[in-house]
Write a protein that binds this DNA or RNA. Structure first.
Lengths: 255, 255
DNA sequence: CAAACCATCCCATAACGTGGGAAGATCTAT
DNA sequence: ATAGATCTTCCCACGTTATGGGATGGTTTG
């Protein structure tokens, strides 16, 4: 089937406008369309509240209807969709499960995962929640909280899950600093004996932490000897790609 | 000029989808368009990343390109545009200046105003900032902060601007409670001798406070004898209309 | 003050979107 | 399991509808 021409053109124009507001002839040049065509499309879009302009002026910008539509999308849903292909890629290169989590109070909530191809694999945690201090995604979330919020967290009871679970506020603070600096965290058998895992943060377009990407596997094979750093790089890189897919611009200079 | 048919139809479909994701025949029914037409438009929109669907399924929902476009709009800009007609209306009915402000740290930042038609009028504060405790918009912002944030605010030095300025933490706490309950605040000559003002909050689509609407005038005529409540109602009503224009749904039931 | 630029409007032309309908896919009820 | 109901996808002849050249008038620039 063929894409309807006028719609394709309308969205070409919209994309230009969203990059930076512009007038008819600017848009005619940037899209390569005749001015009369651009004028007609702009007229239509304006009538439909898709774009707007200052009363007299003829500089068009994105209008209310776009914002309204966008506000109807569930951020979690969006994270999942945007991340899907990247998750797949990560699972393929690592050979281990990879998934996504979002913060929910003092817990980490698992929202999606792609399982490892290995016959020996970790169960899928999707839909469940775990305390922040026992999983790397949680440490990553804490690392992006203001200090007083972290202190409040450290004051509430911190359960021990395995012999390795770190529950000392001092050690957790240290670990948070390290997470901030490195951009990832490894946790070894702190939630469950025999499971190691790593996580890196995913940012939304405003630069705040929307969720975390993690990968985990049985400790006998994950991470493979001396591969901690290589894996960390891959995970961070994948997390960055997801952030970018969500509109996050790295090294953003706030205006 | 005439609105381009396919574009009009495409956005009719998009609006339906943003209300709730749907398939071809649902949309055909809700828009009154032939299924083949809907199918073609959906195909086009999907190719352009305006809508998306789960791999196999055919339930369409709003896609990345819409969200990306929307994320490019400056919330303050949007507030100003959406509020414009409502501000005008308020100035007309009250006969006094009305404007908008947003929170900025412990200050209130004035972003726009429409002046009173009176020859005797207050200067336009657009672009300037004032401490929260001396203007009603500021009290309104404080009223929507969590208690511990308010306490932190009250601990920092609170300057006196006029003989009437309330700087006692106790009195400000009281005033905040009243603001929460009533949904508006009057302040009488607390920022400057001879100026009275009132403010009400404006919410965004998530229900958080985006800014505040205020109106002010010379104290010798504003508010007119016994009109405090009537004016308050008008201001609150206008603020609500602006909130709704921004996608805020009153009495929202979170799902 | 002229030249360059821009938004808007008009209209003849045919390209393009349209929608009926068929075929295939999927779901539902018994 | 099976038939019917319902849905999505595909095709194609038709003519409605989008198109773009160009003219007009307004605005900015040098």
């Amino acid at each position: 089937m063929k894409v309807v021409q006028s719609i394709e053109r309308a969205f070409a124009i919209l994309n230009e406008i969203s990059k930076s507001p512009a007038g008819i002839s600017d848009l005619s040049r940037s899209t390569g369309l005749p001015t009369s065509t651009v004028a007609r499309l702009l007229y239509s879009l304006e009538k439909l509240d898709v774009i707007e302009r200052e009363d007299g002026k003829s500089i068009y910008r994105i209008g209310t209807s776009i914002v309204t539509m966008a506000s109807s999308v569930n951020p979690t849903q969006r994270l999942l969709t945007a991340a899907q292909p990247h998750l797949r890629g990560l699972v393929e290169t690592l050979g281990e499960a990879a998934g996504l989590a979002i913060p929910a109070g003092y817990d980490v909530h698992y929202i999606g995962e792609i399982d490892s191809p290995h016959p020996v694999q970790i169960r899928d945690w999707t839909g469940t929640s775990l305390p922040m201090h026992i999983v790397p995604s949680g440490i990553m979330f804490l690392a992006h909280w203001p200090d007083d919020a972290v202190e409040a967290f450290l004051k509430h009871p911190l359960d021990r899950f395995t012999a390795q679970t770190v529950i000392s506020p001092l050690a957790i603070r240290q670990r948070i600093l390290e997470a901030r600096e490195k951009g990832y965290v490894w946790l070894f058998e702190e939630f469950s004996e025999g499971i190691n895992s790593i996580a890196a943060p995913v940012f939304n377009h405003t630069g705040s932490v929307l969720g975390a990407l993690h990968s985990h596997g049985p400790s006998y094979r994950f991470p493979a000897e001396g591969m901690e750093d290589v894996i960390a790089q891959r995970v961070m890189q994948t997390a960055s790609s997801i952030s970018e897919a969500l509109g996050f611009v790295p090294n953003q200079i706030s205006k």
